[in-house]
Design a protein around this nucleic acid. Structure first.
Lengths: 219, 219
DNA sequence: GACTCTATCTCGGTA
DNA sequence: TACCGAGGTAGAGTC
């Protein structure tokens, strides 16, 4: 990884046009050829960047970075304050716990959490417009399509609506109800779900995993 | 900005749990207190990060970063290869041209571009499921809900469908037609719009802005 | 390669 | 502050 600190201006032409006026910034060139330009604020996003693969043409005053999609980044170097290179080696990568996939696994393992008497028919139940996260039968034997999200937004309700539209064309299943499950459900998503006759259920990943019994959450 | 290159392990506990095994990485500490940890690949995303405001507790072997939302990042420093600090000063920021907002402004300024006789009722017209980009009346006085995108995809059509569903419940407006406007409309989006009775209109930002007259685009 | 969906999305706007 | 939507979304998985 090459780390440059320099007073510079930057121009990007590609999916849109963007310009950075003169200032001191960090320019990171990674082993895969990617380039990122950071200011001294905002943890996550570089001001400008180019994803690999890139072609870098370098002169002392100007770097021109192009890629195969017709995007171009031009860095005018007015003053280089530092220019160092470190060999970082490869990274073992990030291990995560608590994403939507884990939520799905826990709910599939015990669907009765969603409602008494629920039993799982199939995970990733296929429809013509994509797979439903879970298809269940309730205590009365009626089919229920379950869509699971970490954050419940209107988009997820739309997704479930589409699945229900198709599932309700299957004589072996119909009528199919909808259940929208998330750790957090936004007001607009709830309004839309109500309008579509879809029920909502909020769950807690930590509780499902058994870390914190439900009654302890009162504190 | 402080730039550390170090062999380290990292643990994050917050919106989810994540772990990074031992490796050499770049640790960036910005003036606003934000922290980002980068590997030598992937231009954009740090492996781990903490957004400001943060509280950083530092010992030679361990950094503990916490914020007000109960998130915590712990960095175990096994070997520090470099530790430098640069004063970058403030950044004038990024100027962008060609985003959706600019498209909206130009169309709001002259809705007749969309169709002869169109006049604007209101931008960001509110509904229970979110605001429509523009509500217009056509030459005959009929209401038209307009959704504007840079890239027209099925999602945008779904969005407009949702608005229309609710707008058509308003006796003062109904019947409300839909018009989907974008610089580029994907085939699938067009098919879906047709199926929903929504009209499509392709516009060109440069032409609207007046840079390039329509007839010059033939070359 | 194109399409789909998630994300510790980030970031900006607004009520 | 919370909510909403755009983004050069990026990045991962699937077909």
């Amino acid at each position: 990884m090459r780390i440059l600190v320099a007073r510079c201006t930057v121009d990007y032409e590609g999916r849109l046009a963007a310009h950075l006026a003169e200032a001191v910034r960090l320019i990171m060139v990674k082993a895969d050829g990617s380039i990122a330009i950071h200011a001294d604020g905002g943890a996550y996003k570089p001001l400008n960047w180019m994803n690999p693969p890139n072609n870098l043409t370098e002169t002392p005053e100007r770097w021109t970075v192009t890629n195969t999609r017709g995007e171009q980044l031009v860095i005018e170097l007015l003053e280089v304050l530092s220019d160092v290179t470190h060999d970082l080696g490869s990274d073992p990568g990030l291990r995560k716990d608590g994403v939507e996939a884990h939520l799905q696994e826990l709910l599939a393992a015990d669907p009765s959490v969603l409602e008494d008497g629920f039993r799982l028919v199939r995970r990733e139940y296929p429809t013509a417009v994509g797979p439903v996260d879970m298809l269940c039968r309730d205590a009365a034997g009626a089919a229920v399509a379950v869509e699971i999200k970490r954050r419940g937004e209107t988009q997820g309700v739309e997704q479930l609506s589409r699945y229900l539209e198709f599932l309700n064309n299957d004589p072996a299943l119909q009528p199919v109800q909808g259940l929208f499950v998330a750790e957090e459900i936004k007001p607009q998503a709830r309004v839309l779900a109500d309008a579509r006759g879809i029920r909502c259920k909020v769950v807690d990943y930590a509780v499902l995993r058994g870390d914190r019994p439900e009654d302890l959450r009162l504190f």
